[in-house]
Design a protein around this nucleic acid. Structure first.
Length: 219
DNA sequence: CACCAGGCAAGTA
DNA sequence: TACTTGCATGGT
């Protein structure tokens, strides 16, 4: 088979349809959500964002001025609230110092240069940086997460211990270089992961991608 | 009750 | 470099 990566995308899109990612009203909200969702269910992140919205604090300058203690108490439902409060403030300082708190200014930066600068912020790793680049700033970069690795490993397209860059390169080499496809594909992988590829209750037999690719034939 | 979710950094060897 | 641990709420 020529290009499994792209074929899987088409199969998932046909099965699930467009996912309309990232859920969020503004680019700033997407960025905050990207940090809050680190190893955390999106349902809990929504609660945290709702509480920030309720207090009308979901703006760069408002949030930056908030004390870490106060911020932590507001984002409590998202878990890891003390460390996430610090991470948010690190990012907000980065945004304020380098771009005057203006997303528009940040978005003018070249993709790889901005990625490097985001990675230098304590609390922003590769997935968070790439999520911000793709989903908040419409940059052409593919996001890798735990679901993505698990799904590809199960279908024998990567090894269990494949690294982030390795998997990201695999996607970006095998797909049309289009932001909308990168956006939709990652969202579809998360959708598939949630419904068919959970750690405790996998439903491989009903997987829309098909079971033939990972079935082990004995004898 | 146990398990784990759209990670990351710091500590250790 | 590679492996381990802390961080924490809330849904299933």
């Amino acid at each position: 088979m020529k290009n499994k990566i792209f074929l899987i995308y088409k199969k998932l899109y046909r099965h699930f349809g467009p996912q309309h990612w990232w859920p969020g009203d503004t680019r700033f909200e997407v960025m905050i959500g990207a940090i809050l969702t680190q190893n955390t269910s999106w349902l809990n992140v929504e609660k945290a964002i709702a509480s920030l919205k309720k207090h009308k604090l979901l703006k760069p300058h408002k949030l930056y001025k908030l004390s870490s203690k106060r911020l932590a108490s507001l984002i409590k439902p998202a878990g890891y609230y003390n460390i996430k409060a610090k991470r948010l403030k690190n990012f907000l300082r980065f945004l304020s110092v380098n771009y005057e708190g203006k997303i528009g200014k940040m978005s003018k930066e070249e993709t790889q240069a901005l990625r490097s600068r985001l990675l230098a912020v304590n609390g922003i790793g590769r997935e968070t940086a790439d999520s911000i680049l793709l989903y908040a700033l419409d940059k052409k970069i593919f996001v890798i997460d735990a679901y993505t690795k698990r799904i590809l490993a199960r279908h024998k397209l990567i090894s269990e211990d494949a690294g982030y860059d390795e998997v990201q390169n695999l996607f970006m080499r095998h797909l049309p270089s289009r932001r909308d496809i990168f956006n939709e594909y990652h969202a579809l992988l998360v959708r598939l992961g949630k419904e068919f590829c959970l750690k405790n209750k996998p439903r491989c037999e009903e997987c829309p991608i098909g079971k033939e690719q990972f079935t082990v034939h004995s004898s």
